[in-house]
Structures are given as C-alpha cells and as structure tokens.
Design a protein around this nucleic acid. Structure first.
Lengths: 177, 177
DNA sequence: GATATTTGATATGGTCCATAACAATTATCA
DNA sequence: TGATAATTGTTATGGACCATATCAAATATC
C-alpha cells in the first residue's frame, strides 16, 4: 500500500548499456571490507542532528528505565508542573502534540496515577491537568536522574560552557529556523 | 490495541479527596489566555534537539520540493556517490537503516532512475549500488539547493563559526554519547 | 434562540522502525 | 567432497508516532 510498493521495477537488468557494463565491471570488489567514507554527509546539519537526537533519546531512556518515562512523557510532566490548571489543548499544543494523539498519552499517565484530569467549572468542556502527589514525587526523582546521569554525561563530553552554547544554538534553530 | 488503550480509567472523579477538591478550586481559570511557561523544558537537551531536528527537516523538505528528495534519500545518494560499488547491506548499515527497510527506499530511488542495483559477479547474492547519470545530475542540483538555501539559512542565523561549532558538537554527541 | 466554535475523544490511515522468516548463494569445515 | 552454517536481499508483519476527519457536549457569537 505504500508509495514505494507501487514503484515498478523498470527492468531486470538495469544500466545494461555498453558503458554501464564496463563501469560495473570496474566496481566489482570495490574496497571490500574497508570502512565506508561518510564524505559530505558528516557535515550535513540534518544528518548529524538526527543521529545526535537518536543517541540522546536512547541515553535518556536508559537513565529513566527505573521510572519508565519517555522523553515525551517527561516533557508533559515538566510542563504540567510548571503550568498547573491548564487544559489538554494548551499543554498539548505548546509541546507540538496534536490533541487526538495527546489523549492516549494522558490515559497512560493518568492510569499510572502521575497526573489527573479535572473537569473545569469555568468551561465544562475542558479538562484541567494537575500532577498527583505521586506524579510530583516521580518527577522529582526523574529530574535528579536527568541531572546526575543524563546532563552530567553531556558535561563531561563537551564541558559546561560548550553544553550551554549547544543548547542555546539548538533553541535558536528550533525557534527561528 | 496500544498499551495506552488498555489503561483503565481508574475512576470518574480523579483526585476527589478533600484536599484534591480544594486544590482544584484554586486552579480554576489559572492564567487563562496567557502563554505557558516552558520552564526547565527549554534547557532539556532532548527537547530542544528534537524540536530543532523537526524544524531543520521541515526546511530541508521545502528546499528540496522541486527535486522531491527527503533527507534520508539525500543521504543515500550522497553515500552511494562517495562509495560506489558497495552493496545494500553496507550502505544501509552505515546510515543506520535496517536492511528490510532499505528495500523500499531503493525501490523508490531505482524506479525514479536515480540509482541502480547491479548483481555482483564476485558474490551473486549481493547487489552493488551505483548512481545513474540522472542520479548524479539530480544529486548535483540537490547539493546546490542545500548549500544556497538550507545551509545559507543556518549561516545567517548563527554565523559561519557558530554553524561549524554546532555541527562539530552534534557530531561528537552522535558518535560518543 | 439559531448558528458557529471549541474541547476532548474516536476512528483511521500513513510513515518510520524493528523482528522473524525465507530462498538463493556463499562460507566453513568434518 | 558434501553437510552445515552464515550472509544477502526480500517479504510479511507489528508497533510507535504523526496527521486528518468526524463526533457529542459545551460554549461563544450574533
């Protein structure tokens, strides 16, 4: 059903021109066993950005294994703690999460008694979000884990000054690119 | 079928203790209409990394709209150009793409006549990858678009020196974190 | 008071990522 | 040599994440 599935194999013997066959012959066994050259790829912003993000998320998940918190869940807890009394739409949209996709996230956090939906008396359509006591306690422990295991790792890799510069530049890119 | 779907709604009136009701009352209409405070979130590496990556990919796609190349496809073309004669497993693994998922990507690129699979004569199991002439031409145009529209944007945002420093730090994080 | 908008929610489809399994081919080694 | 193991490209499949359309209830607008 994917677009790529609909792609027709143009021919069974691609590049089968006289020049094609000659070039192919020259390439047989090219640099076998040797490491590939990344070339310009290693200076492509998107490439290095994506790979760094994957590594950081991976490390985050390892650090949070005992609390079973994903980066997205951690960000929700942080934002609700900082902005108690806001509704789902407000929290979701500032995190770039679409409302439909935020429902399942909240179902999960609420089922673990980390946060609660409270019907607003001002506007009975909306749910006000609050951290439960357990949620506050878990978030406090999560922050310590992040500080001691996650950010500390980045500090010993880049140094305090570079770490702050990196985050500042990333924030600028995220906001103004 | 998701995990979160299996989450049971613990109760219809969450946090309905005496303290819970009082706290909820205090929160009604909290900072309505005002912007939310990001708080510690804006200094979380993972958060700012992810958002920056999304913005950069988004901009990349806009710059490449005329060539219809995604960041992943661009990286494949770059790597094949730099390392002609390598097989699918080698190209995919250095890009962090799993072999099964690489098949559809190549089907797509091959159907557009950007690259070609050639049966190796040394090892008839493997397909050697090469850029077609059209693939080389498209990649050349893609590089120019990236340089003039994409990287130039980053330069005017951070400056040349900072841009290089950012990429160097991201590469370090990607490789050593 | 009729109409439009907002909120949370459901259903659904797409894309990306990960694992298992398979046929063809090659490597290993008894 | 020949039996067995490993590798390559591939298919099938399921999960996680993201996006859109739609809905009922509640509210806003006029």
């Amino acid at each position: 059903m994917t677009v790529s599935k609909a792609a027709e194999k143009s021919s069974d013997k691609p590049a089968d021109t006289a020049k094609g066959r000659k070039d192919a012959a020259e390439l047989q066994g090219q640099g076998a066993g040797e490491a590939l050259q990344l070339g310009e790829l290693s200076e492509q912003l998107g490439y290095v950005l994506k790979r760094a993000q994957l590594k950081v998320f991976e490390n985050f998940l390892r650090c949070m294994a005992s609390l079973q918190l994903t980066p997205a869940q951690f960000s929700v807890l942080l934002l609700v703690e900082k902005n108690p009394g806001r509704n789902q739409t407000e929290i979701a949209s500032t995190l770039g999460i679409l409302r439909p996709n935020f429902v399942a996230m909240l179902d999960n956090l609420e089922s673990r008694d980390l946060c609660a939906r409270i019907r607003s008396t001002n506007d009975r359509r909306s749910h006000i979000l609050v951290l439960t006591d357990k949620g506050k306690a878990v978030l406090a422990r999560a922050k310590k884990l992040v500080a001691t295991k996650h950010e500390a790792r980045l500090n010993e890799l880049l140094g305090q000054a570079n770490r702050e510069a990196l985050i500042a530049m990333l924030a600028k890119v995220a906001n103004e690119f």
